[in-house]
Amino acid sequence: MRFLIIIPAHNEEQNLSFTLDSLLQQTHSDFKIVVVNDGSKDKTPEVIRKYTELDFRFETINLQKSEHQPGSKVVHAFKNGLQTQTLDEFDIICKFDADIILPENYLETIDHAFVNHPEYGLVGGLLYVEKDGNWVYEGNSNKHHVRGPMKAYRKECFLKMGGLRETLGWDNLDAILLENLGWKEVVIPELHVKLIKVKGADYTIKPADYYGRYFYFLGLNRFLAYIASSKEAMKSKSPAFFFDIIQSYERCRSEKLELKISKEEQKVVNDQRWKMLKKKWLKM
């Protein structure tokens, strides 16, 4: 199968070469890479140029600097890269970050998974971060969810679910929507992907505001948003955190901020969350 790999990059001169080198070393070589330079002010364009001059499989496009908002900025860059390509030429569409190191068999293993399992719509590995000189499992999500930095979609699945949404929570929305369409999200645990930079380190948004906005843009109704907020407050052992999240969520509702999902998709999200709630909390 042929891969189209889109890599948004903003000020990644220190990390990008590790990502691109790991792609050059892949045992599966049938791929095309589009690096989207998202308004970088450092030497990221020079790093990209090194690879585009070295290998015909590498391309780049340049965007003007956009506002750094969690979720929407990276998907905006990804979409701009995607629009430059003819999708008929590819079987698998990947959204990779510019600060990961892939094992050399990553694409080959993903390819075999899609070929052998027609029901697979989204496949990936597990993220590992460096701690005290060792690479350890990141642990920011459950081991059955493919994290944002290393998404690989079957093209048919990607198109049927309407692609990626330019919104906070996009990397959870995709899993919900594709599952509703009958596809499977699959994590291959032996694929260890190294994450060089900790996600969220450069976000200016406060945690409570982040969660409030996240629950709103995910399309959660008020009841489920309050339940999710209480869960985060219990994790932090701070009742005040609950009210701060709710305040952020309600502010989004009162401002009627635009959602990137339809009414039908909102229902899918809420039904899925309610199902999870009954299973985990109510044991139903």
Rank of each mutant, 00 (worst) to 15 (best):
V269H: 03
K283Y: 13
S230W: 15
E12G: 07
T167H: 06
V187A: 06
K256W: 04
A208M: 03
E89Q: 13
D42R: 07
S229H: 06
V123S: 02
F3L: 03
I176Q: 01
K43L: 14
L178T: 00
N140D: 09
P207S: 07
V115M: 13
L257I: 08
K73L: 14
F56I: 13
K160N: 09
G219P: 00
K256L: 10
L164D: 01
K197L: 09
E104N: 15
K197C: 05
L102T: 05
L127T: 07
N80Q: 15
M234S: 12
T204D: 13
M276R: 08
Y203N: 12
L282R: 02
T44W: 02
V36G: 04
K50F: 11
G212V: 02
F56E: 15
L224G: 05
L87R: 02
G133D: 12
V129K: 06
L20R: 00
V186E: 03
K237F: 08
L82C: 04
V75N: 09
N105R: 10
G182P: 02
K256V: 12
F58T: 00
E264Y: 08
G133N: 11
D21T: 10
Y249K: 00
E258P: 07
I205V: 13
V269A: 04
L20M: 09
D97C: 09
N172Y: 13
E108W: 11
L63N: 08
D42C: 10
K143V: 07
H10P: 09
R2S: 10
E119D: 13
L20D: 02
G71H: 04
P118L: 09
V34A: 00
S17F: 15
G163M: 05
P239Y: 07
M161T: 09
Q14P: 05
I100Y: 11
P149E: 01
L126N: 08
E250N: 05
I246C: 08
G200C: 08
V129I: 14
C157L: 09
C157H: 05
I246V: 12
R213E: 10
P103L: 08
D202G: 03
A175Q: 12
D171L: 08
K235C: 12
E255F: 11
Y120S: 08
G169E: 02
K43I: 09
Y211G: 01
L224C: 10
E67W: 14
L218V: 03
D132S: 14
K197D: 12
R154F: 03
M284L: 15
P149Y: 01
Y203A: 09
Y51S: 05
H117S: 11
L224P: 02
N142K: 05
L195D: 08
F241C: 07
Q83D: 14
C157Q: 03
Q64F: 13
E250H: 01
L282P: 05
N142D: 10
G162F: 02
T44I: 05
N11F: 11
H76R: 13
K65L: 15
